[in-house]
Amino acid sequence: MAKTSVATDKPIALAMTGASGAPYGLRLLQCLLQEGRQVYLMISKPAQVVLGMETDLKLPGRPREIQVHLGELYDAAPDQLQVFDREQWTAPVASGSSPPEAMVVCPCTTATLAAISQGASRSLIERAADVVLKEQRKLILVVRETPFSEIHLEHMLRLARMGVVIMPANPAFYHRPESIEALVDFVVARTLDHLGIANQLIPRWGQSLQED
């Protein structure tokens, strides 16, 4: 049955860029919607290419069509999910007068990392991150690259000093993952933790785990 209401919390902005790791972004989107959070979604053109390579999901080309498709896939309430075009400068996330509660870039390319660090604001994703920074809201970057160069690390350090959460997509193994989904859930759970959203996606450190 379709949902009929949306939580009154301020929206969460979620951006997906063209790094490997599309399943992280999709699973995070699903969890946010399941928790009743309103989501402002931005997907870069390279991200759509990677989505087609790493998942069976075939997204349409236009933001409104993507919104309908993902909304139906994840059983979102009306208007719970809003998808914005890459240069939709009238979107709420483009202005400090209407900032989201927090923003996550998942996965985050090192190019996006660099642009945010420099305040480039060449796309809506970069502008939205710039708004979140200047309005002192939470920004989480799920960076997906290996190894990191000195340039990457310098950008991370600069942003970390501004209060940005740098969260490389590094799943752990203490919870004995038996599937790719379990590895994805570890990173998504840690992201939700930093958003202040309770979840039971993984066993926590210190909880009893299955013994050999």
Results as ranks from 00 to 15, higher is better:
D85P: 11
S123V: 08
A13Q: 13
V188L: 07
E145C: 03
T4L: 13
P147W: 07
D85T: 04
E150R: 14
A19H: 02
D75F: 08
L81Y: 03
L41S: 05
A102S: 14
S5F: 12
S97R: 13
Q48V: 07
R190A: 08
L81A: 06
L28P: 00
R37M: 09
V142W: 03
A198I: 02
L124N: 05
R204I: 03
K58Y: 05
I166G: 04
T109H: 06
R64H: 10
G21C: 02
R176I: 08
V142K: 00
S117C: 14
E178I: 08
V132N: 02
M1S: 12
Y24K: 05
L141N: 01
Y174V: 08
L141I: 05
R158P: 02
M16N: 00
S208T: 14
R64W: 07
R86I: 15
K134N: 04
N199T: 06
E35K: 15
H152R: 09
M42R: 03
S98Y: 07
I151G: 04
L81P: 04
R144K: 10
R37E: 12
I116V: 15
T146M: 13
C108T: 00
Q210T: 14
L157S: 09
E154Q: 13
Q88Y: 11
L70T: 00
G36D: 00
M156Q: 10
Q34F: 08
L113M: 12
Y174G: 07
S179W: 04
A102R: 12
C108I: 01
R137P: 04
Y24I: 02
R86K: 14
A160K: 13
L51I: 15
L153P: 01
A129P: 04
Y74F: 15
K58A: 11
P203D: 05
L153N: 05
A129S: 10
E87F: 14
P203R: 11
A129C: 14
S121N: 11
L124V: 07
I166V: 08
Q136K: 15
P63L: 10
